[in-house]
Amino acid sequence: MADHQSEAIFEKQPVWAGGRSPFNVSYGKLMMWLLLLSDAFTFSSLLVQYGAQRFSNVENPVVTRWPEPAAIFNHFPGLHGLHLPLLFVSLMTFILIFSSVTMVLAVEAGHRKHKKDVVKFMIYTVIGGIAFLSCQAWEWSVFISEGATLHGNTFGITAVGQEEFHKLKFGDHFEWKDEWRTHGPVPFAALFFIVTGFHGFHVFTGVVANIVITIMAARGVFERRGHYEMIEKTGLYWHFVDLVWVFVFTFFYLI
């Protein structure tokens, strides 16, 4: 009776009076959210730096020409020498979004406490992450082989190049001509490497975390613990990586 009474009194206490989680989340999940918030600041400072550099060059084409992203990232493995802008990055975007879906399906399976489904979807997610990293490695190697460095930029597009470039249609034969290229704004490739590299590093750490929790789930650690919250926490991280890619894709490739 007395117990009942104290319960009733406690329930009337405001959420912030103590003795309960005011956000109704676990400690670990709250900390993951805060990590992601600070990471959002890191990525946005990098992207905003890119934006400022680009804005500073946009109205001054005589001195420096900002490179045309569609003229640089237009390759597709196996289809050599064709002008296919955006195709490969769209594939990468699809891979990452799909691995996000398998991740959220793993979280859902965790809510059902269905160990087999969790492991299955986590393996799909890991495969998606590795596929994305492989795509990025290929793209970097092509970009570097075409002359990208951290301290220079030979992708600045000339007026002639711009004119010729805009005549190109999707799927046309493409080859750089010397008179199309000039020295462009130096930070272009450096910012590309820093931002996509930092994002790729996040994908890499995400893949490592996913492998670890896949093994833990397969060995029944979460089953014994009674809940699959660890999948949700790494899931948050993984979706964040996908979220960042949405903006990298928008600012580096689309705009």
Binding site: R54, F55, T64
Partner: peptide, 11 residues
């Protein structure tokens, strides 16, 4: 972005 605009003038 505003600063980026201003940087144009210094180049």
């Amino acid at each position: 972005l505003y600063e980026g605009h201003a940087l144009t003038m210094t180049k």
